[in-house]
Each structure stands twice: as C-alpha cells, then as structure tokens.
Amino acid sequence: MIDNLPFLVVAITILLGLYTILFRKDLIKMIMGISLLESGVNLFLIALGYRWDSIAPIFTGAPSLAMVMPTVQALTLTSIVIGVATLALLLSMVMVIYRYYRTTDVREVTKLQG
C-alpha cells in the first residue's frame, strides 16, 4: 500500500484536475485543471518506469549499472513540450476572449454572434 504512494499521488492529481475542469466556471481555472491533469499523466509515465534501487540512465560517472527505464522519460519530455505549446495557445485564446467579452466566466461567454 505505502509502496504504491506515487500511483496514489498520480490518481489524486488527475482527480483534482478533473474536478477543476468539471466544477469550476472560470476559464483560467479550467486551464489550471487541464495543466494539472497533464502533470498527473507525466508523473504516471515516470512512476511506471521506475525500478527499485536503480539510477538515472546516464553512464557519466554512474555508481551502478542498474538503471530505470529510459523510454518513458523520453515520452514524458515530448509530452511536456506539447503541454507547454498547448498551454500557451489556450492562455492566448483566453486573453482574446477576455478582450471582447470583458469576462472569463464560461456562463457569460455564450453569445455566438460576431
């Protein structure tokens, strides 16, 4: 049970992100929820590749040759970059929305005219 603490943290992070997306009505907070969900997925990938008593997969002055799985770390790197790109685009769209509607509340941003 206590060995699975990283996976529990992943589950709680993803649930917090989902709660924020589903129950908050502010666009900035929904973006925070999306970012939190993304962090949970990244943490899940890293935690999935861990092996007990292993080191990072780098040979420069390595104390032992038991290494954790490197492929998930490469995937996480790609995922982080795409997360940054998505976050920048989402925040820019929220800024444009705020410029025209003067609010970021999703209940107010319902007019489809223009």
Partner: peptide, 16 residues
Amino acid sequence: AVALLFAAVSIPFGNP
C-alpha cells in the same frame, strides 16, 4: 475516483 484509486493500489510499483 473509485476506478483510479483501485488501479493505483493494484499496479505494482517498482517492478515493471
């Protein structure tokens, strides 16, 4: 929440 927490305690950590 139930599904994720059940999965979190059932996946073995540290032994892929």
